[in-house]
């Protein structure tokens, strides 16, 4: 049996370009240049966990828009299925799905992004999240199994942390939330390390100092 090795995109790589049929027309990755993009896949339309996720993504879209972030869904279902499912969600719950959904019938996008994990399913995409920055560089990749719905609050937190890190050249500690102290990058020279403890930061030691923004 012949196997083809697929190179999966990694954090820091340029996002693989694509042109895809979506519920809002043909869209290219380059159309999102200048905006943050959350590209996420789901296993299938009209399935229970995915439906709760779509409702949750739709609910955070106003918060994402405030942060300059666009959403783009994907599954290997066809366009008619996506349209019918989005209409069904709105009819049954009152929640409108405002973002485009890729109908990746030929699996070109899901293959390029490594969204099909044969150990989980040979035909469906797993629950992937690719967070792509305005320069179209992949900044975060999350994978969830078929049985586990995603946490959109965490996705918002990731966006806040990435944008804060970029804007202020800092890092964010475990469980960081906006408004909390951030981590000052660790010194890289002996001289900087000696100065660090005298700079008015909240330090545990020279390599772990926090500050307010």
């Amino acid at each position: 049996m012949e196997e083809t090795a697929v190179s999966l995109p990694r954090i820091g790589d340029p996002a693989p370009p694509f042109e895809a049929t979506t519920t809002q027309g043909k869209i290219r990755l380059e159309d999102f240049k200048g905006s943050w993009l959350i590209l996420f896949s789901h296993p299938g339309d009209f399935t229970p966990v995915c439906t709760t996720e779509f409702m949750a993504f739709a609910e955070i879209q106003p918060e994402l828009s405030k942060r300059g972030v666009e959403l783009l869904g994907l599954s290997v279902d066809g366009l008619a299925s996506h349209i019918a499912w989005a209409r069904n969600i709105e009819e049954k719950t009152g929640i409108k799905i405002p973002f485009p959904i890729i109908a990746d019938l030929d699996r070109s996008v899901s293959t390029a992004y490594g969204m099909i994990h044969p150990g989980q399913s040979k035909t469906e995409t797993v629950r992937c999240v690719f967070i792509i920055d305005p320069n179209q560089i992949i900044r975060v990749i999350l994978y969830y199994p078929l049985s586990l719905g995603r946490n959109t609050d965490e996705i918002l937190r990731i966006i806040d942390a990435l944008q804060t890190a970029d804007k202020y050249s800092v890092a964010t500690p475990a469980n960081w939330r906006p408004g909390e102290m951030v981590i000052v990058p660790a010194p890289t020279t002996q001289e900087e390390a000696e100065k660090r403890l005298k700079q008015g930061y909240q330090c545990i030691d020279w390599y772990l100092c926090k500050k307010k923004l």
């Binding site: 027309g25 290219r28 905006s35 666009e70």
Partner: peptide, 21 residues
Amino acid sequence: PEDISAASGLPLFRVRSGLRE
């Protein structure tokens, strides 16, 4: 596209794809 997006109220990605069409 940026000005068309602001004037039309459509997201920038929609304007870019729409202009092609």
